[in-house]
Design a protein around this nucleic acid. Structure first.
Lengths: 340, 340
DNA sequence: CTGTTAGCGCATTCAC
DNA sequence: GTGAATGCGCTAACAG
């Protein structure tokens, strides 16, 4: 674990023939230093290849410019895109971030968070599809010592900030769009174990009920919905279901499921969108890589990440906790069409 | 940037009525402590919610348990999967990692690396598709102060470790496989600006030459090859080229291009693999999400990442630098078939 | 077994 | 403008 010997501020001071305080001043540029000595110091710095030790600095300023990010994993491009957004915002403010994967395991999530606290991060962003699995107590104590931002979390803990999507509204928009196209027999595909699916199902039920088209057997739960295997499990389930139920449209809780639906249709010899329409949710890059490209609701994951980061930094600087709700917009592409 | 006040080792010592040294001992478990006092200390720790300050600890042990990872970005699932592998290995050894995206910009890459050094990371993993853009001097000086591992880098700097794939051999295997299927008119699709493509093209040329089938116009360079837009640019280029050249197979430098080829074929009304075979490279998850699933060469990106991390940790512990070459294996799926 | 003490590298008073 | 001295939280000798 040893790091090779590096020049310290003392070495620089010695070489430049000044005190460490002066070196510190030119490095931080927060106090006046005579032009002449400033240059001598700078010379010494570059000749010694001196890099200030951030740990030491942060130790005695009791500040930290690194934040922690906890995600379930990266296999799913959803999280990767969110992280991209975080990275972007974070860097603009001179912060760095430690990334931890919790593998959808509450235990590991808590461990990761504790490790982050020990590392003295000045804030933490958590993306956890099912935050209900961890006691609120844990988070309450946590937020008492370090600012916390949840992305797409569904509980309410005081002091914790949230960035999320209005998935209920988004679902309604999707459904209205499908209805406007003449679809009445709309299959609903969801996964298990994420609050997000519950919200969407509720929106679906409500909407279909209002339009007198709710049928229990049109609601399909395919289990785990966040991995690459989701595509195949959606496909398999749908391959049997579609011929039996003959829906004119399929409304999926995410794009992975939509791709599965698309593949099922291909195998069944159904033409999309001529014979059947498919609607996704999220707008992960996959949705525009398949052929035909999937119509979906854009969650703008990059925004999700960058908003969370900005919010966290605001909190770190003493800002109030708050919640940001992003609106999802419909991205009309090639998998939806008028119902025959 | 302020972090909320936390209990320090002094608070714990006071509360437990012992010295800080004793607290340190029970925390680290490296020296014997009487069972009785140990418990008193532990009680104090949990009642104060004490978490040892890693920065302080690492400052005076001159060790660091965080490493730095620099990638071009995460949009491409390739990097996401590699990072997954890194995360896994790194955590097993109790390390954490700071992630930085360099956005394919050498300037940003150097900045990111400097920030990492300042943070006192004990090692750095760099994934950079075209490391030639940064002067070797930079890396030479870098590796003199902190262990360095390159993933899929193509230069040779002494002291730097490498983990890479035998892409030359992999390409040969792919080509041989296609040849074995009876294909002689094999289009080669590559991108710009990455050493990887050069290696593969060389393998292609050599192989085709040996088999008397090399045609200059069968080599297609579609430009940027690492973003999601790659799929469309490959598709567009191929849509015009395929009818003119009438290849029986397309060998792509990565799966993104292969998906583009697949989409082009769909638009041209060509059936894959009946009319034309398509071969990818990398085995990113996308390759098995599309329909039909793409035959490809597995780079095993997870392995790439975890090997790099293990190697880095070995180096950190004083091990020699070395290079690891992973073999790529053929994953036969649904886009390749016998040539008519 | 346990307490005391001296730094780790740096920023920051307070004098000069 | 600049230097000397103090302490951030912790570990590692060194004594007892």
């Amino acid at each position: 674990m040893d790091v090779k010997k590096q020049a310290t501020i003392v070495d620089v001071a010695k070489k430049a023939g000044v005190s460490v305080a002066t070196v510190s001043r030119v490095v931080n540029g927060n106090y006046p230093v005579k032009q002449d000595t400033k240059e001598r110091v700078k010379e010494a710095i570059s000749s010694l290849n001196y890099v200030p030790n951030v740990q030491a600095r942060e130790l005695n300023t009791r500040k930290s410019s690194t934040i922690g990010v906890v995600v379930p994993g990266l296999h799913n491009m959803f999280f990767a895109e969110v992280i991209d957004g975080i990275e972007d915002a974070v860097r603009q403010d001179g912060f760095s971030f430690l990334l931890n994967c919790a593998k959808n395991d509450p235990m590991q999530e808590m461990n990761a968070i504790n490790a982050l606290v020990a590392r003295n991060v000045s804030g933490i962003i958590v993306i956890s599809p099912n935050t209900k699995n961890i006691s609120e107590r844990f988070y309450e104590e946590l937020v008492a010592r370090v600012p916390l931002v949840f992305i797409n979390g569904y509980h309410r803990i005081k002091g914790v900030s949230y960035v999320g999507n209005d998935e209920k509204l988004g679902s309604q928009i999707a459904l209205e769009y499908l209805f406007g196209l003449g679809h009445k027999d709309i299959l609903f595909v969801r996964g298990a174990n994420s609050d997000s699916y519950d919200i969407k199902e509720e929106a679906y039920r409500q909407f279909m009920e209002e339009h007198g088209s709710l049928r229990e057997d049109y609601i399909l739960n395919i289990g785990e919905g966040n991995g690459v295997e989701t595509v195949d499990s959606a496909m398999n389930a749908l391959q049997g279901l579609i011929p039996r139920l003959k829906p004119t449209a399929i409304c999926c809780c995410n794009d992975l499921m939509a791709v599965g639906a698309l593949n099922a249709c291909k195998r069944l010899g159904l033409s999309v969108p001529k014979d059947i329409s498919i609607m996704g949710y999220d707008n992960i890059s996959l949705s525009r890589l398949v052929e035909p490209k999937i119509t979906t609701m854009d969650q703008n994951m990059f925004q999700l990440g960058s908003n969370a980061a900005k919010l966290l930094i605001e909190n770190i600087h003493g800002g109030q906790s708050k919640r940001i709700m992003l609106d999802n917009v419909l991205i009309e592409r090639e998998t939806t069409g008028i119902s025959m």
